[in-house]
Simulated assay, not measured.
Amino acid sequence: MTSFVPASIVFMGVAGCGKSSLGVAVARKLGRVWVEGDDFHSSHNRRKMAAGHPLDDGDRASWLAALGEQLRLHPGALVACSALKHSYREQLRSASPGLRFAFLDVSPEEATRRVSARGSHFFHASLIDSQFATLQSPVGEPGVLRLDATLPLEQLVNQVCDWLPANAAATLR
């Protein structure tokens, strides 16, 4: 007998939208594996962002490959990844058939406020504009849920869980 493995979900959007906060909360509620995308950035990428320099496609290539590998290793995982471009999402989809995306939509002003308040995080608030310039909205792509990132966390958790097919919310064993 084969056991059901729910689709993995990438919590995506610009820096400061709440990917990690929401993803961790949903992972706890569903008992699923959590993968923090920031943990897979190279030291070069971290230094570059901390210095206020945006990443380019070349910088993101190894990071996206590492996250794709995590999706392959942990079917049903929940992952934080900005996934700003359609091509990045397609790369992740190829690593995880049926992959879904929870898009946390936020204004540039709110993202800047949140990133500025984080303190010790390596991402520099001056990079918010570059994130919005890179963002290709996933709205309208299959398997994407748009969320208002300014809603209370519990409401967002419920929206994600309600969006999943009934059997996809089952805890992985």
Rank of each mutant, 00 (worst) to 15 (best):
G18C: 02
T134M: 08
G143E: 04
P142C: 01
P138F: 11
S137M: 08
K48I: 04
A170R: 14
R100T: 01
S94Y: 03
P138N: 10
L64S: 09
V24A: 11
C17E: 01
L92D: 04
V106F: 03
L78G: 02
G98S: 11
P108E: 11
E110A: 12
K19Y: 07
L22S: 01
S116D: 02
Q70A: 12
I9Y: 05
K48H: 05
L164C: 03
A117E: 14
L67H: 08
K29I: 00
A168H: 13
R113V: 00
T112G: 06
P138K: 13
F132Y: 10
C161N: 02
H53L: 09
L99T: 12
A169H: 00
H53I: 12
C17D: 00
R114L: 07
L172K: 05
P138G: 14
P108W: 08
E141S: 11
F4C: 13
L172S: 15
G119F: 03
Q155G: 00
D38A: 09
E154A: 11
G76A: 05
V106D: 00
M12H: 03
L151F: 01
M49Y: 05
A169P: 00
L153W: 08
A51G: 09
H121S: 09
V79E: 04
W63A: 13
A166M: 01
L153G: 05
H74Q: 10
P142T: 08
F11P: 00
F4I: 15
F40D: 06
L151G: 00
L64I: 13
S94I: 03
I128W: 03
R47E: 10
L156Q: 08
L147Y: 04
A170I: 07
H124C: 13
F4L: 15
C17I: 03
P142N: 06
A125P: 15
R114I: 09
E69C: 07
S20I: 09
Q136M: 09
E90F: 06
F40W: 13
L135Y: 01
S62Q: 15
S3R: 15
G98A: 11
N158C: 07
L78Q: 07
E69W: 08
L99W: 07
A65I: 10
V106Y: 01
A169V: 09
S130D: 06
V106C: 13
L172V: 14
L67W: 09
T2D: 14
R100E: 04
G31M: 12
A80E: 01
P108L: 09
A170Q: 15
F40R: 05
G16Y: 07
G18K: 02
T112M: 07
S120G: 15
R89M: 12
R118Q: 06
D39F: 07
L99C: 10
G98R: 10
F132Q: 06
G16F: 06
L55R: 07
P54E: 02
R89W: 11
S3V: 15
H74P: 05
L71F: 06
S96F: 05
R60A: 02
